[in-house]
Design a protein around this nucleic acid. Structure first.
Length: 346
DNA sequence: AACAGGATCAACCGCCCATAG
DNA sequence: CCTATGGGCGGTTGATCCTGT
């Protein structure tokens, strides 16, 4: 008698993953890690709801070197209903993450050197794809396997050097896995560890985690990219910014839940304190920062949260981390939130 | 343009192994 | 030691895309 299946295959979704499912999984893994339990992950992912943001536009004529965006039009779209989770088998989630969603993955474009490594290892250890893939940074076992079966095998045979039958492994291999990629984030409270990869920027930031999320951003020019997230409430903020205005806010599904235009004015001397009990799932826009990005000197992210337990009270926020001195400019908006919640940190 | 066959690759299946209780 | 459980892995499938006729 075989072992029981890991999930009820009749009730979970199968087949190709939708962008929304990808986003849910990516967000959850980046913020919480896998928790060492893929089977339970689908129920956890999306349990608090996740949202995507699209940076729709920025002011025309604004130079790319401008330290922060004057206006942000953020469109918040609901990716999952709170508590619904991911209706996927845990193994399917693991496979999807490891083979497709991991940020350090390379697809296609195999080099001659990689071809040689694959052929050499196949000749020596056979179809132990996980071991072979571990020698090729950014490659997955599934990808290497497919590449061998569809291309490289023929290539090798065409060279009249058919690989000998695979032989069993004669030695021990140490399979090193890289943690989920991403970035180093800043949080005010230590979270249960997620993978803390190298940051692309802001080297002084602390590893984060707890409320790290990720999403996808599409600029007006059509560029699409992914971004991680952070939650960085801090009790000390000597400066303050305010939201200048917004348009068409709706707290009820269906998406878009809200479309906000932020105007982020220069910091003022007014101080403000973050109100306790605010739950935020903030999102970074890493592709827009660092050298080559529109915001070369820091981090920019937006967030969409809920106040306390009142699910009807929604909030949007955006933040840009200034380069020198290390500081943050925050802008937040909530059609029910008391004025003054917006702030900046230094 | 329509079709057939091949190529590609994401996803699934099922087994094995490690580990906790 | 035994059993249950979950992670890892290699083999396979099938939907989609590509290319040639």
């Amino acid at each position: 008698m075989g072992r029981a299946p890991c999930c009820d295959k009749a009730s979970v979704k199968r087949g190709p993953w939708s962008p929304e499912e990808d986003e849910l999984l990516r967000s959850y893994v980046r913020s919480h890690g896998t928790g060492g339990n893929w089977i339970a992950l689908p129920q956890k992912a999306g349990a608090h709801g996740w949202f995507s943001f699209r940076l729709v536009d920025r002011p025309a004529g604004r130079p790319a070197s401008w330290p922060y965006c004057d206006y942000l039009l953020l469109v918040a779209e609901r990716l999952a209903v709170a508590g619904a989770g991911l209706n996927r088998c845990g193994k399917s989630c693991r496979l999807r993450w490891l083979n497709y969603l991991r940020p350090d993955i390379k697809h296609g474009g195999y080099t001659e050197q990689e071809d040689r490594i694959i052929c050499s290892l196949y000749n020596s250890i056979g179809s132990r794809w996980s071991i072979i893939a571990s020698k090729l940074p950014g490659r997955t076992d599934n990808d290497v396997k497919n590449y061998w079966n569809t291309k490289l095998k023929k290539k090798a045979m065409a060279m009249h050097q058919p690989p000998p039958p695979p032989q069993q492994q004669q030695q021990h291999y140490h399979h090193h896995r890289h943690g989920a990629g991403g970035r180093v984030l800043l949080v005010s409270t230590p979270p249960p560890q997620p993978p803390a990869p190298q940051s692309q920027c802001a080297s002084s930031m602390q590893p984060s985690p707890a409320s790290v999320a990720s999403s996808a951003v599409t600029t007006a020019s059509g560029d699409a990219c992914s971004f991680g997230a952070m939650y960085s409430p801090s009790p000390s903020q000597p400066q303050s910014t305010t939201l200048a205005g917004y348009t068409s806010v709706s707290a009820a599904p269906p998406s878009p839940l809200a479309e906000l235009i932020y105007r982020v004015p220069p910091p003022t001397a007014a101080a403000d304190c973050w109100t306790s009990g605010v739950a935020l799932d903030d999102v970074f826009l890493p592709e827009l920062i660092g050298s080559g990005g529109e915001f070369p000197n820091g981090d920019l992210f937006g967030g969409f949260g809920q106040l306390l337990q009142d699910r009807s009270s929604m909030e949007l926020s955006a933040c840009y981390l200034l380069p020198n001195p290390q500081s943050e400019i925050w802008a937040a908006a909530d059609h029910v939130k008391p004025a003054g919640l917006c702030h900046s940190l230094t």
